[in-house]
Amino acid sequence: MRADVREAAGAHLEIVETQAMARSTVIMGRSLAKVASAILIVLVWWLLALTLSPDVLPGPLPTFRVFWNNLITGQLHTHFFATMIRVGLGFLFAMLLGILAGTIMGLYQRVELVADLWVMVALTIPGLCYTFLSFMWFGLNEAAAIIAISITVFPSITINMWEGVKDIDSRLIDMSKTFQASPLRRFFQVIIPQILPYILAASRFGLGLIWKVTVLIELIGMGDGVGYMLNFWFQVYDMRQVLAWTLFFTIIMLVIELGILKQVENRIFAWRPRIKV
């Protein structure tokens, strides 16, 4: 190869490396800013609590004490576990249903033509309505709760998958054909990687939605779970407990979202340029 080309290539390599370094510094700075903002919020909370009655806003410390007490008496585990099972199963069924429906809609134009309206309808109906219908049809039981959760969440997963399948780049499939790639290789190495980002986006979105629906459903028709406890403490008007449960739930959600899903995404999608928003 000619020297000038090699030189240009080397310069490009350097630029890429510098960009990577700059990026990690930026990420460090950003997480520091996030930690600082969390401290600031707790501080504001504490200051506000000083001026307000504990019935309206208890301070961070009393709230944490209640939370700790729930934890060591085992109350937290029982209800958290009940909620997690509903979230997990609801999520699983919603994903299965959504991936199946979305893929079929993306592949077959005739199905899409009819189904797009009904997916929108399904998306528009409030989760509360599905919950009432499910409880009235199937009774106040675990299965009815999981059905309601799945039905509420599956339309948004369907829409994500539908977009993903439509976005498959047929030019890459043509490319793989010119190299005689077998159908199996084409499916796993050309098609699936293209849909994967959509599956992940769908699951993050779905999970965010599922937490909220599950808590609501537990409040309406279940005898345990985080939603049930929230409602219980609301009925007896214990602000510290309501705050403690809310806080606990939010932290668990964040850990799953940022600690697991976000990490998986970063690892799988290292090949994508990061878009600064």
Partner: peptide, 10 residues
């Protein structure tokens, strides 16, 4: 091809 048609994840 006219475009490189590389698999972007590889």
């Amino acid at each position: 091809f006219q475009e490189p048609r590389l698999l972007p994840w590889r």
